[in-house]
Each structure stands twice: as C-alpha cells, then as structure tokens.
Nucleic acid binder design. Structure first.
Lengths: 233, 233
DNA sequence: TCAAAACAATGAAAATACTCATAGTCGAGG
DNA sequence: CCTCGACTATGAGTATTTTCATTGTTTTGA
C-alpha cells in the first residue's frame, strides 16, 4: 500500500509519514502542488492525502483535475480549522473524506484505513487494471479515454486501438503486420499504407501539439511507444 | 460505515460528527434539506441522522420521499423537545428511531450502534446489492423499478435491462456487441439497429423529460452512463 | 561518399460506416 | 380488435476509415 502525502509544511508532513509508516504503509511525500500533480498522474497510489493550501497549485484544483483522469483513488483532504465551506467544496470536487487541522494522528490513521478498506471492497478495484500510465499519458480503457497531463485527447477507435497496443507493450517494437493482425483482423488486405496514415494521425494528436515524441519508428521493424528519459530528443 | 448527518446547527452537527468519528465511523455532513436529499439519492449511507427543522426541505418530507426509493437505510430523527407528535409522525413516515433534543452524545452513539446492528442482521442487507444509485437515478433491481428523484419511471423490460447494464458499469463504455450478447444472447442476429432504437427510447423516458444527458454515446465505441459533474452539458 | 532503392510521412479527397430520429410491421394478450 | 412492446426499415447528417499521389527520410552498396 503506497500513500502520497501532499503537504508543504515539512514538519506536519513528516509526522504524518511517520504515523503511516508505523502502520506498515509505504509513503511518498510531495511539497509542491504542481509536482504533486505530476506524480499523481505518473504513478498509481493507493491513497492520497492532500492539503488545500499549497504552493504551485491548490489542493482544490489538483483534486478537480485529477478526478478527470482517475475516479477511484481515495483522496483525504486536509482543511484548515473552521473553513467549513472548504469541506463542502472538497466533496464536490471529488474528495472522499476530510480532516480538519489540527488533528490527532490516531484519527488520520483511522480514516486512511477506512478509505482503503472501502476502496478495496469496491468493484472499482478491478478498474485499476484498466488504467495505463506512461510518461504523462494516461489511458483509461474502461472509459476509452486518453489524457495528456489531465488534458483529454480525443481519438477515433482505430487510433485508440493502436495507441492501446503500443502502450500495453511500451518500449517493445510492434510490427505493422502485428498491428494489422490485431486491429483489423487477419482478413484485411494490407496492400496500402493505412498504418502509416494512422500513426501519422496519432502523432498529430498526441505528440506534435506537445512537441514531444512518444511514438517512435524503428525503420524496417515497426513502431514503439517510448517514455524513456530523453524520449523527446 | 458511513453516516450522513443532516443538521443545520453547525455546532450540534460538529458535536455529533466528533462523537461518531471517535467511534470509528466515517461521517458526512449536510446543512440544507435539498442538498441532503441529493446526497442521499446519490450515495449509499449506512445510517442517516436527520433533523426535522431544516432550510430547504423539512426532515419529514425528506424522510417520506426517500422511503419511496430506499426502504432499508436506517434513519434516526432528531426532534425538538416536547414535540411529541413529531415522533409519531416520524415513525409513520419511515423513520427507524428518534432522539429528543437536547440529548447526551452517549445516547446517540448507543442508538446509532443499535440501528446499525439491526440493519446488518436484517435480510435487507442483501438488498443493498440490488439497489443502484447514479446521479439522481435510483434503480431497484429487487422491485425492478427505476426512479428519478423519487419519481418513478416506467420502463419496458428491454429498456430496463439496458439501463441496468449501463448503471451497473456507470462511467464505463459498453459496446453494442456487449449489450446484444448480454441482453439478447449470442444467438441474436444483430443485423439491424435495434440497440440504437432502444437507447433512443431510454433517452426519451429518462433524459429528455428532464433536460439531462445521462446516457451518452461514445461514437465508434458504444454507450455509457455518465453522472459526472457536468453530465448535462 | 553518393545515388539509387526501399521505406516512411503527409495532405487531400473519396468511400464507407455510424448514429439517430421517424415511421412502420408484426404478433401476443387483454 | 385494439393496444403495447419488440423489432425492422430508411434516410439525412456526421464522423471515420481508406486510398492515392506526393514528398521526405533512411539504408545500402558500388
């Protein structure tokens, strides 16, 4: 169980981390809103503890944007004392629970435990397997949606199928004949350059507007999804 | 265990919340009758604590309307001191227990505990699995009934089956072939547009009279039930 | 190293498929 | 015999898929 703590007060953050670790959870900390969001998009956490007042981007905004791409990871919000409407807003934006500062660590533990219990019971647990993350691309195979940094990218079915195949085997080279076989079926007469055209469509939507190169060509062999360090060189 | 507290006095509300939380319950608060009702229809709570005097809509009305679609979630009513007939009326409208203000928190805890014990022993517990809520739609698969905000919607069997499948997997895309397979069976020759037509029927009954769009099309992929924030855009 | 050959990318246009609303047929049951 | 639910047919509007001609890029071998 891996938990992300997003809290800029380093003392509080460490206290929370200690408490959770002593419960056997593995913990990752983030102190800045923007950085936190990137981490959330790149990696699957089992639970996220999210402060509201953060440098970079507020917890509210992070929560709202994150819920566009991920609806199952439980979020526990930390609100300042007395800010009652914060709680309402938090729930509206997709938080699963809140805790008012200051709080007892014991209570935080209870709430995290119950959030995790709830989400593990949920049928949504299986949905995790349907979500693929690679670089700053998120592909939700349940909703058939693709995001780039929480910005949605609209793909046609064929484009989507190709991207799915490439992301499922990221790093691996997929030959054109493999793509044809799996997406068009064996009966398809591939006497034209249909695949090249679709790869081009994909790049137009996925790579070019962002100035990056995830979809790479291996001349003579096929295509592959590259999310290594310097993938956009 | 998640408990909803519907009480407009924020001090009392917080006191109740604290008491329940220290018992290990997870708590959600609502301060307005109309909002509370929306929350009740959208989410399954294990117990509801309901004040009578509320802005927006009285506890009596909420209770009565809620019981049309949900007969198992225990409701504990809070009545003002001396209003004896309130208790009678409360029971008549479907409340499971009442508590007269002011009261000791200890007593509230006891009553909530016993309500929860009772409902968990009940055969009605199994019924929860048969009730699906999504947005302001409630589908009772035990009674084969569909409600929109406690107003019943009459569906034909085929329409019902489709809606059930979509709501069971709300948010997920269901392809036409999946729908055909599960509802008509594998032997059905799907050479026509039967599904499109039924989706149209469903929308006519479920969406159009209310100016909303729960049933969405993902062109080329299939259909899905959308109850996100801006589902009617 | 350079040119030819093989391979890949691109833009535009034609062909095809999909969705949806309306209208109509058919058969079972009151 | 009339109504209602299940299903079929059709056509317009839209979106997607495919083809083709052209341009660009990489590889190879003399």
């Amino acid at each position: 169980m891996k938990i992300l703590i997003v809290e800029d007060d380093s003392i509080l953050s460490s206290n929370i981390a200690d408490a959770l670790q002593s419960e056997g959870y593995s913990v990752v900390k983030a102190f800045d809103g923007l950085l936190a969001e990137k981490m959330m998009l790149k990696e699957n956490y089992d639970c996220i503890i999210l402060d509201i007042n953060l440098p970079g981007k507020t917890g509210f905004d992070i929560c709202r944007d994150f819920r566009k791409t991920d609806t199952f990871t439980p979020i526990l919000m930390l609100t300042a004392f007395g800010e009652l409407e914060d709680k309402v807003k938090g729930f509206d934006l997709g938080a699963d629970d809140y805790l008012t500062k200051p709080f007892y660590m014991r209570e935080l533990i209870i709430r995290v435990n119950s959030l995790l219990k709830r989400s593990s019971k949920n049928p949504g647990d299986a949905k995790k397997d349907l979500i693929y993350k690679a670089g700053d691309i998120t592909l939700d195979d349940g909703k058939k949606k693709v995001f780039r940094n929480s910005e949605i990218i609209k793909l046609t079915p064929r484009e989507y199928q190709i991207l799915l195949k490439l992301i499922k085997n990221k790093g691996e080279i997929i030959s054109k004949s493999q793509l044809i076989e799996e997406i068009w079926g064996s009966s398809f007469t591939a006497n034209t350059n249909t695949i090249e055209v679709y790869i081009n469509f994909l790049r137009n939507k996925l790579d070019k507007p962002f100035g990056s190169h995830y979809i790479k060509t291996k001349v003579g062999y096929g295509y592959y999804f590259d999310n290594s360090e310097n993938s956009n060189l």
